[in-house]
Deep mutational scan, measured.
Amino acid sequence: MQGVVKVNSALNMRSGPGSNYGVIGTLRNNDKVEIIKEVDGAYEIRFNGKVGYASKSYITIVN
């Protein structure tokens, strides 16, 4: 499943599905991501070869 990031500035990509996990990357508006699955209000995603988590509130599914 594919998604597009929709933010005003940037969205943190984290090592786990919550803000208490470390930041492993930054997503920008209109970045395209692969959605692997939904976990606790976040999506597990793949972006630029990395797998991490981002809030589903800022990712629009575009299948």
Rank of each mutant, 00 (worst) to 15 (best):
M1S: 09
M1F: 11
M1P: 06
M1T: 11
M1A: 10
Q2P: 09
Q2H: 12
Q2R: 11
Q2S: 10
G3N: 01
G3E: 01
G3D: 01
V4W: 06
V4S: 04
V4P: 01
V4G: 01
V4A: 04
V4E: 05
V4M: 08
V5Q: 01
V5G: 04
V5I: 07
V5Y: 01
V5C: 06
V5M: 02
V5S: 01
K6R: 13
K6D: 04
K6Q: 10
V7F: 06
V7W: 05
V7C: 15
V7P: 02
V7N: 07
V7D: 03
N8I: 11
N8A: 13
S9H: 14
S9C: 15
S9A: 10
S9P: 05
A10D: 12
L11Y: 05
L11P: 02
L11V: 15
L11E: 07
L11W: 01
N12S: 14
N12M: 13
M13D: 03
M13Y: 07
M13K: 02
M13H: 02
M13E: 02
R14E: 05
R14H: 15
R14D: 04
R14G: 04
S15V: 08
S15R: 07
S15C: 12
S15E: 12
S15Y: 06
S15L: 07
S15M: 06
G16N: 06
G16L: 03
G16H: 07
P17W: 07
P17Y: 05
P17T: 05
P17S: 04
G18K: 06
G18R: 05
G18Q: 06
G18N: 12
S19P: 15
S19M: 13
N20V: 08
N20D: 12
N20F: 10
N20E: 14
N20C: 14
N20K: 12
N20I: 09
N20P: 06
N20H: 13
Y21T: 13
Y21Q: 07
Y21V: 04
Y21L: 04
G22R: 14
G22Y: 13
G22C: 15
G22M: 14
G22S: 15
V23Q: 04
V23S: 07
V23P: 05
V23T: 08
V23A: 05
I24H: 02
I24P: 01
I24N: 04
I24M: 05
G25Y: 10
G25K: 04
G25W: 09
T26E: 08
T26D: 03
T26F: 10
T26Y: 10
L27F: 02
R28I: 09
N29T: 07
N29W: 06
N29Q: 07
N29R: 08
N30S: 06
D31I: 03
D31M: 05
D31W: 04
D31S: 06
D31L: 03
D31F: 04
K32I: 14
K32N: 08
V33Q: 00
V33T: 01
V33P: 01
V33H: 01
V33C: 05
V33I: 06
E34D: 10
E34L: 11
E34H: 10
E34W: 14
E34C: 13
I35M: 02
I35F: 02
I35Y: 02
I35A: 01
I36D: 01
I36T: 05
I36V: 09
I36Q: 03
I36Y: 05
K37V: 04
K37H: 08
E38V: 09
E38F: 04
V39S: 05
V39R: 05
V39Q: 06
V39N: 04
V39T: 07
D40W: 10
D40A: 12
G41V: 04
A42R: 09
Y43S: 00
Y43D: 00
Y43V: 02
E44T: 02
E44W: 08
E44H: 10
E44R: 07
E44C: 14
E44I: 10
I45H: 00
I45G: 00
I45W: 00
I45C: 04
I45M: 03
R46K: 11
R46M: 11
R46Y: 11
R46E: 07
F47L: 04
F47N: 03
F47D: 01
F47W: 11
F47M: 04
N48F: 08
N48H: 10
N48D: 11
N48I: 04
N48Q: 12
G49K: 05
G49S: 06
G49M: 05
K50Y: 07
K50L: 14
K50I: 14
K50Q: 12
V51W: 06
G52C: 03
G52T: 02
G52H: 02
G52K: 01
G52Q: 02
G52W: 02
Y53C: 02
A54F: 03
A54Q: 01
A54I: 09
S55L: 11
S55H: 10
S55R: 08
S55A: 12
S55P: 14
K56P: 05
K56H: 04
K56N: 05
K56I: 10
S57L: 14
S57D: 14
S57K: 15
S57I: 14
Y58H: 12
Y58S: 09
Y58V: 06
I59D: 01
I59V: 07
I59M: 02
I59N: 00
T60D: 10
T60R: 12
T60K: 13
I61D: 03
I61C: 08
I61L: 11
I61E: 04
V62T: 11
V62A: 08
N63S: 13
N63I: 11
N63W: 11
